[in-house]
Simulated scan of single mutants.
Amino acid sequence: MSDSVLSIDDVHLSFPIFRGEVHALNRVTLEIKRGEIVGVVGESGSGKSVTAMLAMRLLPEGSYHIHSGRVNLLGEDILNASEKQMRQWRGARVAMIFQEPMTALNPTRRIGKQMTEVIRQHQSLSRDAAKQKAISLLEEMQIPDAKEVMSRYPFELSGGMRQRVMIALAFSCEPELIIADEPTTALDVTVQLQVLRLLKHKARASGTSVLFISHDMAVVSQLCDRVYVMYAGSVIESGETQTLIHHPVHPYSIGLLKCAPEQGEPREMLPAIPGTVPNLTRLPTGCAFRERCFAAGTKCTQTPALMPAGSDERQVACWYPQREAHHV
């Protein structure tokens, strides 16, 4: 049995627009192994959510074009799989936790009805057995009065409770991979921490792999084993989470971490990365970050490949990696 749950290899994806294309993913390569919790982090527009949606083939058919690359999910080539096959795999083998549960849950149907239907869709259980499993999952998510919550509608629950329902729903059919697309963004810090702990505990207990999408390095540091940093549709640095967070080597990773609120001083402006993200319809030649980079040099007019950096599993796409010069 392969140790890889999800493997994205050298994928170049674009969205056709009037007189051009938006190059959303540019030769993206990443891997998640069994039992791993892996983070993907970057600014808005970096390609994080497109990567997540592609991994489940949830992008609308005909809306995008794959120029190159492969996506292998649990031993299956999903780019060439039929939609019927994908419907069988979604939920049962791979599940998703969306950013906003109020749009993911049906507001006109009770929580219990939605959960039992999903469970029975993928498992041969009676209605009563599916109901008991749903209640048990809600209790694992530390939802008080789980039986009573089963009879409620989504709008009757708080944001934190709705997100716990979404996590319970994702684990309901015992998938091998869960993709969480910024699931705590809309929550306050205290509730966010509670939800992250529940997600991590359940994933570890069940051996489920997790692909966690976030723009927040602090959140990733609490949850993930490894992290991929994306910029302008490309992976620019990857490695073990604590190593990358405390010793980033790509100038973009360094800048991203220095902009974090916890790095700031009282009554002082937070530092910012100068410039703006490049237009994905007209990407600059060479390194996409070079016009904003403090370390840019003559080689940056050529596109750097993602290469090993150091003795650990770190990889970086940079001609001038900073090595030990910056500790965050």
Rank of each mutant, 00 (worst) to 15 (best):
L199V: 08
V219F: 00
E176C: 03
S221V: 08
Q192A: 13
H215F: 10
S172H: 06
I167N: 01
A168E: 03
A180G: 10
R226Q: 06
T185I: 14
S234G: 07
S206K: 11
R197G: 15
S214Y: 07
T185Q: 14
L187I: 12
E237R: 00
S206G: 03
L196K: 11
H201W: 05
L199Y: 09
A218K: 09
A203K: 00
C224N: 04
A218Y: 08
I213F: 08
D225P: 13
R204T: 00
L196P: 11
C224H: 02
C173F: 03
I167P: 10
K202R: 09
V235Q: 08
R197V: 08
A180C: 08
S234I: 04
L169K: 09
L198H: 08
R204A: 05
V210M: 00
T184Q: 04
A203E: 00
S172E: 10
T190D: 12
C173T: 06
T208G: 01
S238V: 08
S214D: 13
M217F: 14
Q222I: 03
G233D: 09
Q194A: 09
M230C: 04
A170F: 05
G207K: 01
L187S: 12
A218Q: 10
L177F: 04
I213V: 13
C173S: 08
M230S: 06
C224K: 00
I213S: 01
L199N: 05
G207Y: 05
A232W: 11
R226E: 04
D216K: 09
S172T: 02
V227F: 00
V227A: 03
P183I: 05
I179Y: 01
V220D: 02
T184N: 12
I236E: 01
M166G: 05
L187E: 09
A203L: 01
V165E: 10
F171P: 03
A205T: 07
C224W: 01
V219S: 07
S238C: 11
R197N: 15
Q222H: 11
R226K: 15
